[in-house]
Amino acid sequence: MKKTIKKSWMIASALTIGMAVLTPLQAGATSVEPTNGVTVQIEQQITGTITSFNGVGVGIKGRDGKNYYISFSKFSDEQLKQMRMNIVEGQEITVEGGVVEHYADFYTFEDYKKELPKNVPNEELTKLEKMFSEVKKLEKEASKTKEMEEAEKKYEEFNKIWEEMYKITKPYIIASWQPQPFKEFLENYGFSENNIVIAENDKKELKDIYEEWVKLEKDGQEEKSKEKMKAFKKVLQPYLDELNPPETFEKYIEGVNLEISTEDLAKLKDIYEDIQKAEKDDNYELYNKLSTEFYNILSQFIIPPTFEEYMSRYEFKVNKADSKQLKQLYEEILKLDKKEDSTKVEEKWGAFDNILEPYFEANREILISASKLTINGQEYLPR
Rank of each mutant, 00 (worst) to 15 (best):
S133V: 03
E92D: 15
E92Q: 15
V135K: 08
E193H: 07
L128S: 06
E147R: 12
L186H: 08
A151P: 02
K153P: 00
P181S: 10
E156A: 11
K81G: 13
P117I: 11
Y69E: 02
N54P: 06
I161P: 06
E124L: 11
V95M: 01
F75N: 01
V120S: 09
I196M: 07
E193L: 13
Q82C: 02
A175N: 10
Y189N: 02
Q79G: 04
K61I: 07
F53Y: 15
P171I: 08
F109G: 05
A142W: 00
E184N: 09
T169M: 06
G57E: 04
E157V: 02
I87M: 11
F72T: 02
K136F: 01
E150P: 00
F158D: 08
T94Q: 09
E115T: 15
D105R: 00
E101W: 08
V58K: 04
F53W: 11
E110W: 03
E129H: 09
S71H: 04
N54M: 06
N194F: 04
P171C: 08
Y155C: 03
L125H: 08
A175L: 09
N188C: 03
N194P: 04
Y107I: 12
E163N: 14
Y112H: 11
I174A: 10
Q178W: 04
M85D: 15
I93K: 05
K130D: 09
K154L: 15
M131C: 08
E157G: 06
P121Q: 06
V120A: 07
K114M: 10
S76D: 05
E156F: 11
V100I: 14
M165C: 07
L80C: 03
Y103P: 10
K74Q: 13
V135T: 14
G97Q: 00
I93L: 10
A151T: 03
I174V: 14
I161W: 06
G59C: 04
W177P: 01
L128K: 08
D105W: 00
G62N: 03
E156R: 11
R63E: 15
Y172K: 05
I173M: 14
L186C: 06
L80F: 00
Y103V: 12
I93W: 02
G55F: 06
K153A: 12
L128N: 08
A142N: 00
V88K: 15
V95P: 02
K146Y: 11
S192A: 14
I174F: 06
P117M: 09
E184C: 04
K146M: 10
